[in-house]
Design a protein around this nucleic acid. Sequence first.
DNA 1: ATCGATGCTTACATCGATGTAATGGGATGG
DNA 2: CCATCCCATTACATCGATGTAAGCATCGAT
Lengths: 335, 335
Amino acid sequence: MRPTVKDVAALASVSPKTVSNVMNGIVYVRPETRSRVEHAIAQLGYVPNLSARGLRNGRSGVIALAMPDLSTPYSAEMAHHFVEVAHEQGWGVQFEETAVEPGRAWDLVSRARAHLVDGVILNPIRLEESIVTGSGVLPPLVMIGDVQQNAVDQVWVDSFAAARDMTRHLIGLGHRRISVVGVIGGRFDTATARLRQEGYHSALAEAGIARDPSIELSCEAWTPRSAAERVSSFLTHHDPPDAFFCFTDSMAIGTLSALWSAGLSARRAVSVAGFDDIADGQFATPPLTTVTFNKRYFAEQTLELLVKRMSTPDAPPVRVAIPHAIEARASTTAR
Amino acid sequence: MRPTVKDVAALASVSPKTVSNVMNGIVYVRPETRSRVEHAIAQLGYVPNLSARGLRNGRSGVIALAMPDLSTPYSAEMAHHFVEVAHEQGWGVQFEETAVEPGRAWDLVSRARAHLVDGVILNPIRLEESIVTGSGVLPPLVMIGDVQQNAVDQVWVDSFAAARDMTRHLIGLGHRRISVVGVIGGRFDTATARLRQEGYHSALAEAGIARDPSIELSCEAWTPRSAAERVSSFLTHHDPPDAFFCFTDSMAIGTLSALWSAGLSARRAVSVAGFDDIADGQFATPPLTTVTFNKRYFAEQTLELLVKRMSTPDAPPVRVAIPHAIEARASTTAR
DNA sequence: ATCGATGCTTACATCGATGTAATGGGATGG
DNA sequence: CCATCCCATTACATCGATGTAAGCATCGAT
C-alpha cells in the first residue's frame, strides 16, 4: 500500500498538515520538525498523490498539446520543444492528435475542463468553430498556427510574409516560372495554405510575373507521398518549371524525390524550396532551402502565454508573431 | 463555476450517485431516469472531474510514454502509433523525453507512483539500473527496445537478426566491402548498437568475409548530421566501400547526403541501407532500403502488455518480439 | 507574575466522484 | 387485499492533500 501524508505524519509524530507544510514550503516550519518530516518521507518513499492534490487545489500540473499529426517531422520537432520547455517549468504534457477524426479537438477541450489538464495548446488546421463558439467557459487555451481568429491567444509565424519572402528569393535567383506545391484545392483547404498562396501571389505581382494556375499544384495531404505523386504527374505533362516552392519541407522532400525519379537533378535544373526547416531538410540531396524560425522560442512564447492565461483568464487575447528567415541552401540556385 | 454531479443531480431530481450510475453504466438505471440525467448533463455541459475520479478509484486513465528524443522521425512515428492506439482504448498519453539528462526516466517512474499515470512505456537507451533495482514497487511498466533485462515486460524487434538479415541482403547483391555506420565507440554505447553490430558480424562470418574495423564507423549520436560528418571524413581518407549499412534510417539519410556532397551517386556507385523504415526514407534520393516492422502492431502489443500488467502486477515478465522484414528499395543495387 | 503577541502545530472540513449498505416503491402471488 | 420480494435509488463514508481557523507554547514586557 502506498504511503500517504498520514503515514508520514505518524512516523514523524506530527500532524498531516505539517507534512504538507514541509512539502509546500510556504509556511515556516521549525528546522528540527522539518528534518524529522523529511526523514520520514525518505524512509517511507512517500510520493504525493497528484490526483488528490489536483482535486484539492484545482491544478493538475499537466497541459495538453494537440497537433494534427505527431508522426510528421515538423510536428515532432515542435512537440519536442514544447515538452522540453514545459518540463523545465515543471509541467507535464499530454498529447492528442487532431487530424485523425473531426471533433478530436473538442474532446480535448472537454478533457481540459475535466481538470486533468490545466491548459491546452492547440494547433488546428481549420478553425473548429465549435471550440471558439462552444458553450460554456473555455479552458486556458493558446492556439498555434495560422488560423485566423481573435477569440483566444495565438502564436504564429507570418505565413503570408514568409511565403512572399521565399518567392522573392526565388525571383531574385532569376526564376520566373515558379511552381507552388500544396495550394488549396479539392478537399484540401487550410488557413496556412491560403496564406502562403497569397504571399506567393503577392511576390509575383510585385515582380510583374503573371500567375499561372497550371503550375499551382494542390495535394491531397501535406505529405512527401502526396507531393511526389502530384509533381510526378505534373512532370509527365508539362515542362519542368524554374523552381518549385513547396509549402512544407515534407512536400519539398517528396518533390526532390519526384525530380530524381524523373531523372532531373535538382541542383542543375530545378530549384526546390520548402518551409519549416525540419532537421532532415539539411540532409536532403541537395540540402533544402527553407523558411526557418526558432522553434524553441516559439514554444517558450506559447507556454508563457498559456501560463499567463491561467492566472488572468479574462485578459484580452494576445497574438504573438515569431520572426522567420530564409535559410538558403543548395537546393535553390541561380538560373 | 464548473458543474458537478451534485448540480446534475439537482437538475434531474435524482441523487448524485444515480448520476454516477448513469455515466458508468454498470448498474441498471430505469430508461426514463437515465434520459432525464443525460438531459441534465447535456444542459449543464457537465464533464466529470478526472482528478476526483482518479482519487476515488486509483486510476487516472493516463499512461506515460518515455522516449529518448521525440524530435527524431523514428520516435515521432512510434509516438504517433502509441497515441493512436491508446486513444482508441480511452487512455490519455503523457510524454517524457529521457535523452536530455540522466535520471529523467527515474523522475517519470516517480510520477507514475504519484498516480498521475497508471502505467509507463519506457524506451531506454541504456539500462537504467536505478529503475529495475529501484527501491519500492514499480508501477506497471513495459520496456520497448533492445536493452537486455528480464525484470519487466518488454517488446522489441530482434536487432541482431534484422542486422544479420540486412547484411545478408547486401552480400546477396554482391557486396563484399560493407561499411557499417553507428557502431559503438567513443562515449557511444547502446544495447541496440551492440546487437546490430553483432548481427552484422554474424552475417559476415557466415559468408566468409573478414571483418575490417576500419570500415566500422561510430557516430557521436544517431543523427543524420553525425553520420554525414563521419562518412564524409571517412571518404576523404578511404576508397568508398561497396555499401553502407546504417543502423538507423536517419543515419542513412545523413550518409546519402555525404555521398552526394562527395559527388558519388548512391544509385550507381554505393549502396546504402538503413533501419526503422521511417516515412521519409521512401522519399530519399534514392529511396532507402531498410529494415521494416509494423509499428502500429508494435504499439498494440505494448499497450496490451501494459494493460495486462495493470491487472496482474505479479505475473512473471513477458518478452514479445515483433517480426521484421527487409524492404528493398532503390538505394541498394547489385554490384 | 501576568498579559499579550508571535508563531508553530493541530483538528476539521473540503475538493468531486463513487462503493457500500440501507431504503423505499412497485409488482407479484396467494 | 396483504405479504413478500426485487430492484432502482438514496444517504453516507471514503479516497489523499490542503486551506481555515483554532489551539498551545514560548517569549518579552510591564
